[in-house]
Amino acid sequence: MSFPNDDTPADHHDDRPTPQPPIRADLASIADMVAPGSRVLDVGCGDGALLAHLVHTKGVDGRGIELSMDGVKFCVNHGLSVIQGDADTDLKDYPSSAFDYVILSQTLQAMRKPREVLLDLLRIGKHAVISLPNFGHWRIRVRLLFMGQMPITQRLGHQWWNTPNIHLCTITDFVGLCHELGITIEDTVILDRFDRVRGHGFDGFANLIAEQAVFLLRRG
């Protein structure tokens, strides 16, 4: 991502409001679920694109946790409050209900204990916003059915032996876990392979056409 203030002319101090670059459609879907001015924790915030967008356009009090030190440095260099940490181990430090929203984007499937992480997210945040790649997409089903091979897609681009995604699931699987844990799904956004929004809400058809889904969750 690029930050606009990197292009500030050298001859004056820049205290103008910074115009924000457009963000990826799936991140925009997440951002849409976050109320302005709220307290947000972005778990696995990467280069901080979503966090910067939320801070600058929605005025949130935003924090991030990122595993890669390069990502952390990039974020902090650009004025974001980000710590180096591991969601699998560090979420337990946070007090309950400390945030209005805890975001986990494209990361739950890489967690060692996704069920515990999910519970922790909803302990720390009043809401959790989770985006997931959908292993139930028809292309994945077709590849497995007709080629007998682990599917490789644009979003799931790794080989079976080097993928960080150790806990893949379908939308149906995830919804089932939410029901089992007594989690309320307030909104579901279905995105196709071009990151276009194909609808809200979940059904069997969505599980077939969604490359990924974004869920807004709440306790109870």
Binding site: H13, N77, L80
Partner: peptide, 25 residues
């Protein structure tokens, strides 16, 4: 690396405090 982080952090704080940001370079 230290100086970039220090600069970025102080710059972010300056924005929140209503102080001028750093010049480029």
């Amino acid at each position: 690396e230290l100086h970039q982080v220090l600069s970025g952090f102080l710059d972010g704080c300056a924005t929140h405090r209503g102080l001028p940001r750093r010049r480029r370079g």
